[in-house]
């Protein structure tokens, strides 16, 4: 075990291209690690399976958000024009639902869009400005042209020496401990 007072938050290793990243992700997954992530400047296809991730559940939340929007729109238009402020226009019934379709549609979309964006941020736990990976200077290349695997210390199997050796053995370069600045 490593020095306790050093407090390692995790280990990162750099890989040269998407192919290396993909193959290494499979090996990390097969070695039984759970708290790891693969960082790339653009989404790499096939990584979800390589990392053993389940499909994103965001869509279900958006369906709920959209349905809420539609229901709010219908209720609002019904209450405002058929209950609270009854004015007959063009001889139409007070609850003339055909005329309420456009606004119902627009609010369904509006609520869905907000659910998508805020749902995505919640799923991703963003905004978060203090993640341990940001303590690595090399990690800045993750948004440019480099590929990283980060393995976090809260993984049940985490042992910094073993993890470092393992990441080197699967081809990781610049293997680095993530240590918070004091």
């Amino acid at each position: 075990m490593s020095d306790k007072d050093k407090k390692i938050d995790g280990i990162i290793a750099e890989f040269s291209n998407p192919y290396e990243l993909l193959k290494s992700a499979e090996k990390v997954r097969d070695a039984g690690y759970r708290k790891f992530d693969c960082h790339s400047p653009f989404p790499v296809h096939g990584l979800d399976a390589a990392m053993g991730l389940k499909p994103s559940k965001l869509g279900w939340f958006v369906a709920i958000g959209g349905a809420t929007g539609g229901a709010v729109a219908i209720l609002m238009q019904w209450w405002m024009s058929a209950v609270d402020y009854k004015v007959v226009t063009s001889g139409k019934p007070l609850f003339s639902f055909q005329a309420f379709v456009p606004i119902t549609f627009e609010l369904t979309i509006l609520f869905s869009a907000f659910t998508v964006v805020f749902g995505m941020l919640i799923f991703n736990l963003l905004p978060r400005f203090n993640h341990p990976v940001f303590n690595s200077e090399r990690f800045k290349k993750a948004t440019d042209d480099s590929f990283f695997i980060s393995l976090m210390a809260n993984d049940p199997q985490f042992n910094s020496e073993k993890v470092k050796d393992f990441l080197k053995s699967i081809g990781g370069e610049h293997v680095e401990e993530l240590i918070a600045d004091e």
Partner: peptide
């Protein structure tokens, strides 16, 4: 940039979000 770190666990939801946004837009 909200602390974006390009992890695939983020990209996964991000791509889904982008697809749904395209679908509703």
């Amino acid at each position: 940039s909200l602390g974006w770190r390009g992890g695939n666990r983020q990209w996964q939801h991000y791509e889904k979000a982008y697809l749904i946004l395209a679908g509703i837009a």
